[in-house]
Structure formats: C-alpha cells, structure tokens
Design a protein around this nucleic acid. Structure first.
Length: 893
RNA sequence: GCCGGUGUGGCGAAAUUGGCAGACGCACAAGACUUAAAAUCUUGCGAGGAUUAAACCUCAUGUCGGUUCGAGUCCGACCACCGGUACCA
C-alpha cells in the first residue's frame, strides 16, 4: 500500500516536541510550574500553585505491565490507547490530568532465566523494561514519565517494605472496625507471662506467622497463594501443587471481608466484576451448632446455612484433618481412620476435585447427640468436608443437600425429609426454600422464619449461635524466591521482630545460585553473610509475592520521587480527590484486563483500607471507576499465542501504518469491553481515513515538491515538511455556511458524548462522517478544520497537531491543552423533518413537515399523501398515532 | 451445576429513552484516471421476488411464544458461544 502521508516524519517530530517541552507533566500542589508550559498558559498559572488554585484533578490509570521478554502484546495498547484518549480529552476540558506508567517487574520469569543462565534478574528486567518503554513511547502516549515507577527499584520497594511494617505493626479492632496500631491492643490481665503476652500480640497482627497447610509447588520450589493454584496446578507453568504444612507469613485479609464487601457499593465497577469479588469473598449467613459427642462428651461445632433443617441431620462429617478425630475415634475404627486420613493428606487438590462426584469417607466409631431431639447420629470423616472452611465439620442433612445425599446414598445412611418442597417438586434433594415438616417446633414455618426461630432457640439453649462465614482465606504472603521484596523482619530466639525503619530498604543479597537450597530453604538462605544481623539476629529468608508491589503503586505515582516518605499527604489528598468539592474519591478511572478481577484488585483494596484506617490515605476505596478492556484475538478468531502463530506485533503495525493509525484501529474495532478479532485490513481502513484528513488540508502539489526534496536529500526529510502548503480550498476568511456548521457541530456533539461514555468506535465513525462531508466542500473554512483537528487530537495526536500547525503557522505548538470545542444546538436544528409514515407498523411513505408542525397539520399532510391513500382504499382508520419529531403510524383495517 | 456476559449482512460493528434495522469501516463488484498496475475518486452492496428501468412487494436482529399502534430494544421459556467459579455446608 502506498504511503498515505509521511507519518514517520510527523510522529518522530511531534514526540520529540512533547518530550522537550515536558508537555504531559502533571502538577502537584506546590510544585513549580514554568510560565511557558502549555498547561500554565491554558490556565494562566505559574510558579508554585496550592491545591485550592489548581484546576480539578483527573487521575487516569492503566494497570502497569509485567515487562516480559516477549515485549508488548497488542492487548496492552488497547487499554493504554483508551486511557490516553481520555487523558488528552480531559486536558482539553481543563483538568489537571495524572496519567502515569510503570513496571510491575518482580516475578518468576526473570528468576527462572537467572537459574538457567546465572544472569542476574536485574539485568534481564532492565533490558525488558527498556524494550517495553520504547514500544509504549512509540505510540505517542501522553504519560508523565517523570513519575515512572519500577517495583524492583530499592527506592520503590523500600516503601513496600515500610507498608508491610505498618501491617505488621497493626491489628484489626472489631469494635471500631478499623486497623489500629498494635500498641492499642488490649491484653487480657490474666496474662502475666511475657512470652504469653508476646504470643497474644503476634496472634493479632495483620501480618502474622502461621504454621499452615500451604500449596507447595516442588517444581517451582515455592508455596503459592490459593489464588495462584488453578485446578490443582500452579497458575504459572502448570506444575503439580501439593498441600504441606509450613511456617509462613500471612496477611489478615479476612478481618476486612465485610468492609471489602461493603466498599463495592461505593464504586463504579461492572456488575460482573463486583459479582466476582463478592463470590470470592463468599459471605454466607447461618449458625454454628454445637453437638455433644455421645461417647466422650466433647463438643463438636458445625457451621450450617440451614439451621432450619437440624431435625433432618442423620449423620455428621468431620474433615479428615479435624483436630477432634484422634480423640473421638473408637479403637475398632482407629486403623481404618488412620489409613483414610493418610490417603486424604496425600491427595492434591486436583485429585480431590477430580473425585468430586464419587464420595469417600469412613465411620469413626463415634456418635453425636443432636441438640434438638437428642438423637444419636454417627460421626464420619470424609474429604468432601474442607478443614479450612467454617468449623471443618458439618451436620449432614441428606434430604436437602446434594452432597450429603450422594454420600448418604453411597453409604446407606438414613434420609429424613424436613422441608416440604413447593407443589410439583420432589422434597428429597430439594435445597430451596419451602416449609418445615417433621421438625417439632418448626413445623409449618416457611424456611426463612424457620431459620430465624431455630437460631433463637439455639442461642436460648446455649448450644449454638448466629454466625457469618466467608470463603475468603487469609492471604499467604511469603514466597521462597529470590526476585521479590525481602521481608524487613529479623528472627532471634524463635521470635520475629521488625527491622528498624532507618535500615530500609532491605536489599536482596548478591548470589551466584538462585535455586532454593537442597533442604528446601529459600534461595536467600544461601547468603550466609547477609543473613547475619546484630546480636545474633538473623534475617527472614522469604520474599514477598509479586502482588505486593502492585498493591500501592497508584499511590507512589502521586509522589514518585519522594525519598523521605511513601507519598506526600498534601499531594495524596489532591489526587485522591478528598480535597476538592465534587472530585472523585480515588483514581477516577482504572483500565485493565479481567485477569486481575479478584487477585490484584482485592489485595490492593485491602492494603488501601488498612492504610486508610491508619490515616495514611484519605479515601477508603482506591479505584473509583474501573473498566475491563476485552481481549484482542488473532485474525483467526483464536486467542493470540506464539504456538498458534497468530500474534500481531505492534512494532510491525506502527512501522507500516504509523502510531496514529494503530491507535485509531484499536479503538475502531469495537466497544472497549468486548473481545474482538484483529484484522490488519481494518488498520488500512483507518489509515486511509487519516490519509483523507491529510489531503483535506495539505496541497497536493506541495506534497509532491516535498517528496522530490526528500528523494534528493534524505537527511533533510523532516525539514522538508516546511515545504507543505495548505489546500487551495481552505479559506481563512470565508464564513462557514449553515450547512458546514451543522456538519461540524454534529461531529463535535457526537464525539464529545461518545468520549464521556467511552464509546470510542462510534466517535471515530462520527469523525469519518465529517471528513467525508468536508472533502466535498468547495470552500473549506479554516476555523471548521481547526475545530475538527482539536477533536481528532486525542485519537491521532501526531497528525492532528502537525496539521494544526500547518493551519495556524504555529509549528512548535503543543495543542494538547487547547480548549475542547463546544457544540451549539442552534447549528443543529433542522427546519423540516422527513417524517416516516407507517401503516400497521410498516414504513410506507415519508412526508416533509415543519419541525414545529402540530398534530393536526401532520395528520393533514399524511392523509393528503397519494401513497398513503392507496393503502387506505376501502379500509377504515382505527387509530392514528403521531409521535412528534419521530413518526406517524396509522392503524387501518 | 451455579454466577455473569454475548448472539444483528460475507466480516468488525451501529441503532443512547420501545419509534425509519444495518451508521461507519473491511471485503467484494462496476466505472473514472492510467500504456498498465497501485494509490485516489465515484457508484453499488442483507436475502428473496417483481419490473425494460424506477417506484414496488415479501422476509430478516440465535429459537419459540407474549406485551404493544409499533420490539434488535421490554417480559417468559429455550438453544449456542465466551468468561468466572466449583464439594465453601
């Protein structure tokens, strides 16, 4: 395809201008703003400006990428383009826009590369960042690069470690429902022993150590969070994962389950995303019921969401790992129970899931007494009951629970109906709401009331209580890896303590070998000198998971170069919106992929809430509005992947069609949230559109002259742009006609409304309509074209600014801060309307009517129409509907 | 299984509050320009029928039904695909 316009010359020269003028720097309160900066000129500001006098803020954030060796994928720039367009639009609307970018650069690939080659992960990481940055910058995004962050930079992770110490030094106070400094934790007076008191304190920290069954991945030599295990395999690499008890750092996210749930009501996220988070947190209301063991008299507590079915409990099941099993098991059953427990412990999660349909279990030779009717019911262990949820024990009501029913059928346990299903449905196996039967004092009550009555009864009898449970588990926060943030923790005499703040950052040691040690210790344990601290203390050898750095990066952007504090409170309250009336609390818009729907977004919200409780952030939710971009598929409609060979490299598109065409195509493909296939022919379409914009403004002969000049001396290619002249139809003096104003203002209106609603694809089509029209104009009023270029600027910034310079003669002007054109409804009104006439709902004719014509006038026009009359022949008009400004419908018979 | 989303021409899509289905673009076809091609410009382009031609008629937004003067849009049932989740009591 022949080059439509010299995009290569234009794009490099515009990008250089933006860099030289620091065009996209965002201004913090009190920061010195140079008088000649385009932002200063637009807002008539200069020097240090307090928050109260800065324009309203707009914080627009992309999910920062992991800089992989493969380079940028076309999926990345989709979100980045959308946010860039909005950032540029908001600047034109007069906002002070914060639009930063950085690198989530800790992670496994660099470490595994290091294990293979001995190359320090720092080296790989830096090379990858360099490549990512080059690719991102080639697309002309208006990031404020002075705020670039890199999670692996000691100047960054110093503060990640610092925030960890805040978690370590806090507890959750259920009375105030807030995180508070650990000093405020009331210690029971009965504890006089110092070590007992310490242990009590440690049990309440938000960052704590626990010996817990963890997901151990032998292949990766590390533990994984529940969220990183997919179908019993590691999310990264797909290696088998087994459960193994280990000493680990945990974060008490469960304490915030309710607040994380409640916070969703205050933010603008898609319903599906909120639903995913709600499901992940998994709140369920019910009751704990305590049964007495018939033989030993010990108490066994179960959790149920259906206390109304307590009369239907025919047996009880404990998780194989349940602590009471050893105590309850009878002598005869001991051997069989031990064998089952052994077998269950060796099963991976995958095996447990695969066998989900075929229930297994063993009777332990003990019985429990049902508190409502004193029935003796057998106690079993089975791995369909999870040790980690509720109390690790259930009462089984096979008549009204599918899992219990399957188990009861297999082991021939009794089934008692206690809920009457609605008419026409089988009560056995019915799990919905019905009416209680065979249930003593509950008989006749609908399920809702029966639950409530039973809970009150249990509480009165002191054998149970109302209880809310969450699926959410505490966050397993340590990894046995090298390439992550070291914990700022020391161990001495088996007791942990914080590294003094003055010693932060704790840097990782230098190693030759990045593998875990032979006896399973993390790689940091190899650094024998590094381990040693004063007075015999030793350093923690675990590192933090990759999520740590991304939990707070949006705060660091606000004050990225602050060496003394994680984020200046003054700047924080300005950008996080709590300073000005009407400003959005938190990041105004956050765009990224669905793959982070639960993990990153839940963790970051958790950290933010802790920081907020501790008075370190001013708002309670970090991301006010969040949009997920859809997946970009390959040309074959399949997910892009190296193995399918359908990966499109942005570099190739940029070199063939330019960054502007690339940006425009990514937005023209369809709605941002949808997944949609790539089609390079489609890029050519928008590329042709940009060519038409070029030819609308540039004189063809002067372009030929420029090309000749370039062919003579390629080194002066960029300078020869100055040979370009305006198209001869362009007039700086001609008044635009009413028709021309209408076309322009329709375009302004549509683009403005579509940008507000993030409908980029239709905004682009509106601009195409304008260009198609304007190409036919014999006289092209300069003012119309200039307004159009301001509209085009967010989408195709290089071309728009270059042509704007040609129109105005101001070649070195950054137009990013030019005011957004306003549309005037006066130019849009039509005098007449071609009104559709339907007969029985089918379009049959149209009549020209005055816009302000009344019902009678329209009716007369319609009935006068030859065509309409031909349909009325011999028929009766039953009804005549006139929708003013829309259409007419006649119902005839 | 459960939760969420999406089904519209050959393709990507539009139709914002129930009011002209298919804007805009791709692909394709014809024409202009050209020695020719590319590029560009013009025109056509849901399917079927009718006509010398045009006007015209019928059908059509996953399927079936409903509400309404009028349904891509609202309601009910179902089908397909995509994403999440899965023994969470």
């Amino acid at each position: 395809m022949r080059k439509q316009y010299p995009f290569d010359l234009i794009e490099s020269r515009r990008q250089r201008l933006w860099e030289e003028t620091k065009a996209f720097q965002a201004w913090n309160p009190g920061q010195e703003i140079p008088a000649e900066h385009p932002f200063a000129l637009r807002h008539a500001l200069s020097g240090p400006v307090p928050a109260s006098q800065l324009p309203p803020k707009y914080y627009i954030l992309d999910m920062f990428p992991y800089p992989s060796g493969a380079g940028l994928h076309v999926g990345h720039p989709e979100g980045y383009t959308a946010t860039d367009i909005l950032a540029r639009y908001k600047r034109a609307r007069g906002f002070n826009v914060l639009h930063p970018m950085g690198w989530d650069a800790f992670g496994l690939p660099a470490e595994q590369y290091a294990i293979k080659t001995g190359q320090h992960p720092r080296v790989t990481t830096e090379a990858n960042i360099h490549n990512f940055k080059r690719q991102i910058q080639s697309l002309g995004f208006s990031y404020d690069w002075s705020r670039e962050v890199d999670t692996t930079d000691p100047g960054y992770f110093q503060w990640t470690q610092w925030i960890f110490l805040r978690l370590y030094g806090s507890w959750y106070n259920p009375k105030t429902r807030r995180a508070e400094p650990i000093d405020s934790l009331p210690i029971p007076e009965s504890m006089d022993d110092a070590s007992e008191r310490d242990a009590y304190v440690d049990q309440h920290r938000l960052a704590f150590v626990a010996e817990a069954p963890v997901n151990w991945c032998p292949e990766l030599g590390t533990v994984l969070a529940n969220e990183e295990v997919v179908d019993g395999k590691s999310e990264v690499g797909g290696f088998p994962v087994v459960r193994k008890p280990m000493r680990q750092w945990m974060l008490r996210i469960t304490a915030f389950a309710e607040k994380l749930l409640e916070g969703l009501d205050d933010i603008e996220w898609s319903d599906s995303l909120k639903e995913m988070q709600r499901n992940w947190i998994g709140r369920s209301e019910g009751a704990e019921v305590t049964f007495e063991a018939a033989e030993s008299g010990s108490q066994i507590t179960v959790f149920t969401t259906r206390p109304d079915t307590l009369f239907g409990a025919t047996y009880m099941v404990l998780a194989p790992e349940h602590a009471l099993v050893d105590e309850l098991v009878s002598a005869e059953q001991r051997e069989e129970v031990a064998a089952y427990r052994e077998q269950a412990s060796r099963k991976s999660d995958l095996e447990r899931t695969e066998l989900a349909k075929d229930k297994t279990g063993v009777f332990i030779g003990a019985h429990a007494i049902n508190p409502v009717n004193q029935e003796r019911i057998p106690v079993w262990i089975a791995d369909y009951v999870l040790a980690t949820y509720g109390t690790g024990a259930i009462m089984a009501v096979p008549a009204h629970d599918a899992r219990d029913l399957a188990f009861a059928e297999k082991f021939q346990l009794p089934v008692i109906k206690v809920v009457q299903a609605p008419e026409g449905q089988d009560s056995i196996g019915f799990t919905g709401a019905g009416t209680s039967v065979n249930s003593g004092f509950l008989n006749g009550l609908p399920t809702d009331e029966a639950k409530e009555t039973m809970i009150q009864w249990l509480e009165a009898q002191q054998c149970g209580r109302r209880q809310i449970n969450y699926k959410l588990r505490d966050w397993l926060f340590s990894r046995q890896r090298f390439w992550g943030e070291p914990f700022p923790i020391l161990w001495k005499d088996g007791q942990h303590q914080a590294v003094p703040e003055a010693e932060l950052p704790v840097l990782p040691p230098s190693l030759k070998d990045y593998k875990p040690t032979a006896d399973g210790e993390p790689p940091l344990a190899r650094a024998t000198d590094w381990l040693k601290h004063e007075q015999g203390a030793k350093r923690e050898t675990n590192t933090m998971p990759q999520w740590a750095g991304s939990c707070w990066y949006y705060l660091r952007y606000i004050d990225a170069s602050n060496a003394n504090y994680f984020c200046d409170p003054e700047a924080e309250s300005y950008w996080m919106g709590t300073r000005a009336e009407g400003a959005t609390p938190g990041v105004d818009l956050y765009v990224g992929g669905t793959e982070h729907a639960v993990l990153h977004l839940l963790y970051a919200r958790f950290w933010h809430k802790v920081l907020h409780d501790l008075g370190l952030t001013s708002c309670s939710e970090p991301f006010y509005k969040l949009v997920n971009q859809g997946l970009i598929l390959g040309e074959d409609g399949q997910k892009m992947s190296k193995s399918r060979g359908n990966v499109v490299n942005p570099d190739d598109i940029v070199s063939a069609y330019g960054a502007d065409a690339f940006r425009l195509y990514e937005m023209f493909m369809g709605p941002l949230e949808m997944s949609k296939p790539w089609n390079t022919k489609g890029v050519e379409g928008v590329y042709r559109f940009l060519g038409r914009v070029w030819r609308l403004i540039v004189d063809e002969e002067s372009e030929v002259a420029m090309e000749q000049e370039i062919s003579l001396d390629a080194s002066r290619a960029e300078a020869s742009l100055s040979l370009l002249k305006l198209h001869r139809s362009i007039s700086g003096t001609a008044e635009p006609s009413a028709e021309q104003l209408k076309v322009l203002h329709q375009c302004i209106k549509k683009v403005t409304e579509d940008l507000e609603a993030m409908r980029f694809n239709t905004a682009i089509s509106a601009m195409m309509v304008f260009v198609n029209e304007a190409t036919n104009w014999e006289v092209r009023p300069l003012s119309c074209l200039r307004s159009f270029l301001v509209l085009l600027q967010p989408f195709a910034p290089h071309l728009a600014e270059e042509l704007h310079g040609l129109l105005t003669g101001q070649n070195h002007e950054v137009i990013a801060y030019h005011p957004w054109p306003a549309y005037d409804e006066a130019h849009l009104v039509e005098k007449t309307l071609s009104m559709p006439v339907q007969i029985n709902g089918k379009l049959r004719d149209r009549v020209e009517v005055a816009l302000d014509a009344d019902r009678e006038a329209i009716q007369a026009m319609v009935l006068a129409s030859e065509k309409v009359r031909s349909y009325l022949d011999g028929k009766e008009i039953k009804k005549l509907i006139v929708v003013p400004g829309k259409l007419v419908n006649l119902v005839v018979k």
